[in-house]
Design a protein around this nucleic acid. Structure first.
Length: 553
RNA sequence: UGGGGUGUCGUCAAGUGGUAAGACACAGCACUUUGACUGCUGCAUUCGUAGGUUCAAAUCCUGCCACCCCAGCCA
């Protein structure tokens, strides 16, 4: 992984800081809260944080931002680590905000001693009422001017577990009239009698994000704290804490626009609903844009990284086209995936002039663009199967596959001409009959005659039945979060999953391993699903091939 | 009607006073034993908008418009 991140406005700031001597090296961090699974939006943040550190020869730590035990769980920290590693990044250290609880607590004491923080007895509702509104200033809490000693005493009692959840909070004493609501005496510690997944029952007071984050960054010597745009309003508060606590070489927070992708969902709440209501098959359902979902779908990590590089970094609100992600996946897989032939919706072909009971082996390139990668053997015989789409009773214009009288090339095998077809009582085509030209073995005609169409096939003699999951986008509207009428579930694409049980795959793929990826020629890229077994091989459609056929229809 | 941000092609996005990169998408042509890949061509006289400064403005100034974020003891 030698990619060097392209420059962006964040790097411009860093260049300035380096030049002016504000810092002499660069350190970033990726700070997810372990309360859900990582998705494509996190991938952008991961690439930016790790990519920036790498570009400047600096350090990037993973920091689990676990200051709210109520929502967090070990299950998520394990999944987060696994996903980051899969994406191809290596953290310098894996850290926890919770391991700074002592330090953060001392900082709170310091603020109290400096009369910059106070214990407030107001209820949550009262605090809300005192906060004022966007256009009206707030009112001071009646407890705002408690003495230092009383605050110290009360805060100690809070941490000793003498009060119920919500009974009191510690607030920073800033300015209840600030036009920035975050500066109106924000709560910095709350009481929560709950077991923390890292610190157990050691604490019953926990710092809020706004307090813990700048201190954690400072504690780790982060130089540039990169986060998304919604924290822009928090920056004055971030800087306030660092200044009041006299932090030397304070980290600098820089915000960038988070990633939005059309036709999919990244909201934790909504994804959880999809999982809980069993609309999808878990967090790693191949239709989800979670990292685990994309992994199971067969997206190469390098494609996801490349996508993150291509979308750039800016502060403009944007919605990136899903098509760009898919393009990155095709780009990568076109280079790496071995080719194979698979017939998803089989139609039997009988080659009437091919000797009954005879078969032959044909050598085919594993990758036509790279002959040096070798060949594989496929078996040809009298009975083969082709895609139902590759035959039409009444061909439409510019259709150059099979129809009565047409000659096409059976990929790598022979030219064949369709002579007739059989139907059942419903008029459904059950088989087609062809004659082949023995002189065209390998797919070339000695007399130089050309055919327009080349189609893939598998032989009845050497193919096996498999299940193929055809995936399409989960939602059929560009912005599924836009719940105009009913919930987002109204925007689900009813055809996001098509399960095909009678697909026929070329014999050589009988012993595939989980997560192997192939290009099924003329169709798309497919990977072996995690539930695949030797008896029932399951392929997932990773992404379909581009096609200029039928586009105008 | 407070504060903080953002507006450059259908979608992302370069551009930092010298006359609009690139990618995806789209269209066309060529090549092709994948209607794939690849190659070539086309695709913003214009940068939210109206003025102003300048020899010269997407870039500087002023007004206006649109959109996003903030009133959790969430992050």
């Amino acid at each position: 992984m030698e990619e060097i991140m392209a420059s962006n406005f964040i790097h411009d700031f860093i260049d300035e800081d380096l030049k002016s001597g504000v810092c002499s090296s660069v350190q970033t961090r990726f700070p997810p809260e372990p309360n859900g699974y990582l998705h494509i939006g996190h991938a952008k943040a991961i690439c930016i944080n790790f990519g920036t550190a790498k570009k400047y020869g600096g350090i990037c730590n993973l920091r689990l931002d676990d200051t709210n035990p109520q929502k967090e769980d070990m299950e998520y920290v394990d999944a987060i680590k696994e996903d980051i590693e899969w994406l191809g990044f290596k953290w310098d250290k894996c850290l926890y905000a919770s391991s700074y609880f002592d330090f953060i607590y001392e900082c709170a004491i310091k603020l109290i001693k400096n009369s910059k923080a106070y214990v407030d007895d107001l209820t949550a509702e009262e605090i809300r009422q005192h906060r004022g509104t966007l256009t009206e200033p707030g009112k001071n809490s009646p407890y705002r001017d408690r003495s230092v000693s009383e605050n110290l005493d009360l805060f100690e009692k809070m941490t000793n577990g003498e009060y119920e959840n919500g009974a009191r909070v510690l607030r920073a004493k800033i300015d209840m009239a600030s036009p920035n609501l975050n500066m109106r005496d924000p709560v910095i510690y709350r009481i929560a009698h709950i077991t923390h997944h890292q610190t157990g029952d050691k604490w019953c007071v926990y710092p809020m994000y706004d307090f813990a984050h700048p201190l954690s960054d400072a504690r780790e010597n982060v130089t540039h704290s990169l986060c998304s745009l919604e924290f822009e309003n928090h920056r004055p508060l971030y800087d306030w804490f660092l200044k009041e606590l006299n932090i030397k070489n304070p980290p600098r927070q820089i915000e960038f626009a988070r990633l939005n992708l059309n036709y999919c969902l990244t909201s934790k709440r909504k994804c959880l609903a999809l999982v809980n209501e069993k609309i999808v098959d878990g967090w790693d359902d191949p239709r989800m844009v979670t990292l685990s979902g994309m992994r199971r779908r067969g997206y190469p990590a390098s494609a996801v990284r490349n996508f993150c590089e291509k979308i750039g970094v800016s502060k403009a609100y944007s919605v990136v086209d899903m098509g760009l992600l898919e393009s990155c996946v095709r780009d990568e897989l076109n280079e790496s995936a071995e080719r194979a032939m698979a017939v998803l919706r089989p139609l039997k072909v009988i080659i009437d002039n091919y000797p009954e009971g005879q078969t032959e082996e044909i050598e085919v390139d594993v990758h036509p663009n790279y002959p040096e990668r070798g060949t594989r053997k496929v078996v040809f015989g009298r009975e083969i199967f082709i895609e139902r789409d590759d035959f039409m009773i009444e061909p439409v214009k510019k259709y150059f596959r099979f129809y009565k009288g047409s000659e096409v090339r059976l990929k790598s095998a022979y030219y064949a001409t369709c002579t007739s077809y059989d139907t059942d009582e419903n008029g459904e085509v059950t088989a087609i009959h062809c004659t082949y030209d023995p002189l065209t073995k390998g797919g070339n005609s000695p007399d130089g005659r050309k055919v327009k169409g080349t189609i893939h096939w598998v032989s009845a003699a050497d193919s096996f039945r498999a299940t193929v999951n055809l995936y399409d986008r989960l939602f059929d509207v560009p912005n599924p979060s836009d719940e105009t009428e009913r919930g987002f579930e109204e925007n689900l694409n009813p055809n996001s999953l098509t399960v095909l049980n009678d697909c026929l795959i070329e014999g050589g793929l009988r012993n595939v391993k989980k997560s192997d990826v192939f290009q099924f020629m003329r169709q798309g890229y497919f990977c072996v699903d995690k539930f695949s077994t030797a008896d029932n091989v399951i392929f997932n459609l990773t992404v379909a091939l581009n096609s200029s056929w039928g586009k105008k229809e």
